[in-house]
Structures are given as C-alpha cells and as structure tokens.
Amino acid sequence: MVERYQFSEIVDAFVDAAKEVVTQILGVEVVGQQDGAGDALITFDGVVAVVGFSGAFSGRLLLGIPEPLSVALFHALGGETLPSPDEELFAASEFGNLVSGHALTSINNRFPGSNARPSPPSAFLGKRMVFFNFGTTGSRVILATPYGDMRMDIAFKEEP
C-alpha cells in the first residue's frame, strides 16, 4: 500500500531537484517559490523541456528555460562552442531528465511502492508555444537563477 501523497510534497520534490541539479552542474544558487496553481493552458517562449512520468501517479513536467540558462547548461554538459539550436535542445532535454530523475528518486524513496518512472524527455524551441494540461492538478513555480527566471509547471494525477 502506497502512503497517500500530498500534492505539495510532489511539487516540493521537483523544486528541490531543480535547485539541486542547477547547483550541482552550474555551481550557482537558485531561489524558488510556488507562483500559484498551474494553468490548463501554458504559453512559453524560448526553450521548453517536457518530461512525462507514470507509476502510482502520473503527470508531466514542463520546464521553461531562458536562453542564457540553456547555453550555460550546454557548456556545463561538455559543450565547447556556442550551441546550435539542436544542441540547445539536447541540453534542455538532459536537464529535464536530470530534474525529473532526481525528483522521482526522492518521491520513490519517500513513498515506497510509487515506482514512478520518467519517460524519455523532449524539448522544443520557439515562440508562443502553447501546452495543455487537462484533468490534472497543477502547480507553477518560478525559479530565479543568475541566468534568468526558469518556469516550472508540474501537473499530477493519481492513478486509480
């Protein structure tokens, strides 16, 4: 029997994971706070990483990454030149993978039996990109980094 989750604990796990991963790979501090309930319709400009997850609960992480941060992540992940758009997307995808991996590791250890697993990440680059989260409980978090503010939307649904 899986212990009952509190949605705030799921969100906290993702916020802590994002702070931890940014600090580990870029060596900078991140300040984050919940900015409100998630929206069903979310519009992003720039680079977005998307990671789904499933297990005892399912959901999706959307990470809106400012351009200077995606470039810094690319260099921290071994890139040596100015990244091409493809390379920015590779860096964003891996960043989404790291954040979701660390968050779900923490959640699985906190709630044994959850067995929540991420799906392979994907990333998009563009202007006025619209994403939809329907039938889920959502939360919006703004994380302030020295490279600009990163927006994180966590949508979550418990499986029956």
Binding site: N97, G101, T105, N108, G113, R117
Partner: peptide, 9 residues
C-alpha cells in the same frame, strides 16, 4: 548511469 537512483530501481 542514470538520473534515477531510488531504492526500488
């Protein structure tokens, strides 16, 4: 070599 590292995995 994974971003995941929970006990179950």
């Amino acid at each position: 070599l994974s971003a995941m590292g929970d006990e179950e995995l």
